[in-house]
Design a protein around this nucleic acid. Structure first.
Lengths: 197, 197
DNA sequence: CCTACCGATCGGTAGG
DNA sequence: CCTACCGATCGGTAGG
């Protein structure tokens, strides 16, 4: 094993914060995972909080990039929603530990970092609302849709997959994204025409 | 303030475990919330773990009761799904701290308690699969539905509401349950007939 | 239910 | 990056 740098420490933090939680992980735990003494980590990092800040920020940047992409994307509301669903799942799957830490441990960030993360995620959620709104206006979605509520529900569905989706399983991300988009737009019920046949 | 009993201690634990996490809550924190010394709690409880066991078990019993009810319930798959959605949300809303602790802190239970909770919840999820399956067989739901996946998605959606739903807000549980059931069965898209008109 | 205390562990620092 | 260490806090006990 070679000499460790800050990247290695953050990588260990991503994994352990996701699995044991921020408060369930000690600096000595992180050190052990890297084959170091806990105190040695302080040559790479100034505090334990800083590690959580790093992990949350890198997750935030991924969501922000997706928000920017979809905000400036052309296409129907259905296409843009499909991209949001797929992009969001990609972020969760690409680094599940980072995503779990973001979703579960952001609340333990010291201010003002916590507030910044919350504000960022709300701007991200605004893109979901915009896409849903435009779909209502275009007639792609029900015109009586409660857009704010629907955005919350879509994000709840997406974030919840993090608890059970396994990238090594039989189901891959693309198929999951398709299934979710299909469920969201058409629901569980069969096509009325097929049903009537 | 009168003398405290075990029920009071568990009540404090529900709230603090939900807000600060199990590892982020000390026995002294719980004591302070009750106006006691941390050490005094040990006359009501034998360990900190035991408090988490209690909170998780009471949440489990609510889910189990709903599972039993729906498993023996007559009616269409749509009606039974509707009851599951409504019942699940009721449990989350009735005691949000208990629900949050169950959803986020169960993983920190010592074995074999953790395993028992996981097994219980899987049996609960089986009722969702059964209802979805019967709906596929009856023609209420798409016959090509991936039942296992769909059950995961429905539960993800329901559990995710815990992060943002506020019982004191403009939206009440009954309306939320209706909206979710509507989204699940019919989706975001408008009625095809209406769309064609 | 409190006081007084236990050994272990916490985040973090000094000095090399 | 380690050794040695700091004061604070942890879960928990004894004795009243």
């Amino acid at each position: 094993m070679s000499r460790k740098n800050r990247t290695d420490v953050v990588a260990a933090a991503r994994i352990m914060f996701a699995e044991q939680g921020f408060h369930g992980t000690s600096m000595r735990d992180l050190g052990k995972k890297l084959g170091l003494m806990g105190s040695s980590l302080y040559s790479h990092v100034v505090s334990k909080d800083e590690l959580l800040v790093d992990v949350v920020r890198e997750a935030s940047s991924h969501f922000q990039a997706l928000a920017d992409e979809v905000a400036t994307m052309s296409g129907t509301a259905n296409e843009r929603l499909s991209r949001l669903v797929h992009g969001h799942l990609q972020i969760l799957v690409e680094d599940p530990h980072q995503a779990r830490t973001f979703l579960n441990e952001t609340r333990f960030l010291p201010e003002p970092e916590r507030d910044k993360a919350v504000t960022m995620f709300d701007r991200y959620q605004q893109v979901f609302r915009d896409v849903l709104s435009s779909g209502c206006a275009s007639g792609e979605f029900r015109s009586d849709l409660n857009v704010h509520l629907a955005a919350n529900l879509v994000l709840s569905l997406l974030n919840g997959t993090q608890r059970w989706f396994n990238a090594d399983g039989a189901l891959n991300v693309d198929s999951l994204a398709l299934e979710i988009h299909f469920l969201l737009t058409l629901g569980l019920n069969p096509d009325p025409e097929v049903n009537a046949a």
